[in-house]
Simulated scan of single mutants.
Amino acid sequence: MATLRDIMTPGPVTVDGQATLKEVATLMLEQDIGAVLVMNGDRPTGIITDRDIVIRAVAYGHDYGTAVTDYTTGDVFTMDANTTVEEAAEEMGRKQLRRLPVTDGGRVIGIVSLGDLAVRALGDADEEALKGVSIPNNS
């Protein structure tokens, strides 16, 4: 059975909470990525996406020098690298996650996106995750 370690993108791009929107947007451009993990030491405290920058900051005319912590999605849910792809897909669907940081011994070592599930995973795991993310959460 495939695990998250098998399909993750290793070494996710990270910044500390003092990074500015401009710095993060520049990293996204240079690395050709759509999400950056915000860290406090070894602990992820948030994630910011290109969409977060546009919808939460640019659309309101906010200063690009503002710290990213004002625009991140907090309470980062992670899963261990040895978790099966199927288990991860179920959790991503249940929690409506598009990106999942992967840990080993509590340290972030990679990230899995819905795209990784769709392109790299075998079986219907990606379909389950897509269903969960696509269905509005009424709670």
Rank of each mutant, 00 (worst) to 15 (best):
M1S: 06
A2Q: 13
T3S: 15
L4I: 02
L4T: 00
R5L: 10
D6P: 14
M8T: 07
G11Y: 10
V13N: 06
V13L: 08
T14Q: 12
V15C: 06
D16P: 02
G17M: 12
Q18W: 02
A19G: 03
A19D: 04
L21D: 09
K22E: 15
K22N: 13
E23T: 10
E23G: 07
V24Y: 08
A25Q: 11
A25D: 11
T26W: 10
L27I: 04
L29V: 15
D32W: 00
D32G: 01
I33H: 07
I33K: 06
G34W: 01
V36E: 09
L37E: 01
V38R: 10
V38H: 09
G41T: 08
D42W: 02
D42F: 01
R43Y: 02
R43M: 01
P44W: 09
P44N: 05
G46R: 10
G46W: 09
I48N: 13
D50Q: 06
R51K: 13
R51Y: 08
D52H: 11
V54F: 02
I55M: 15
Y60D: 11
Y60K: 15
Y60F: 15
G61Q: 07
H62Q: 10
D63V: 04
G65N: 13
G65T: 07
G65E: 13
T66W: 03
T66L: 14
T66P: 00
A67P: 14
V68W: 06
V68H: 07
T69Q: 07
T69K: 11
T69A: 05
Y71A: 10
T72F: 12
T72C: 11
G74W: 00
G74R: 08
G74Q: 02
D75M: 10
D75R: 14
V76H: 06
F77M: 12
F77P: 02
T78I: 03
M79W: 05
A81V: 04
N82S: 11
N82G: 10
N82A: 09
T84M: 02
V85F: 02
E86W: 07
E87Q: 12
A89K: 00
A89G: 01
E90Q: 07
M92P: 00
R94M: 05
R94C: 02
L100K: 00
V102G: 06
D104Y: 02
G105P: 09
G106N: 05
G106P: 00
G106I: 06
R107F: 07
I109Y: 10
G110I: 03
I111D: 03
V112C: 13
V112Y: 11
S113D: 07
S113C: 04
S113W: 04
L114I: 06
D116G: 01
A118W: 02
V119W: 08
R120H: 12
R120D: 01
A121T: 04
A121L: 03
L122V: 00
G123N: 06
D126F: 12
D126N: 12
D126Y: 13
E127V: 14
E128Q: 14
E128H: 10
A129V: 15
A129Y: 11
G132D: 05
G132C: 04
V133P: 07
S134I: 03
S134L: 09
I135K: 15
P136M: 10
N137T: 01
N138G: 05
S139D: 08
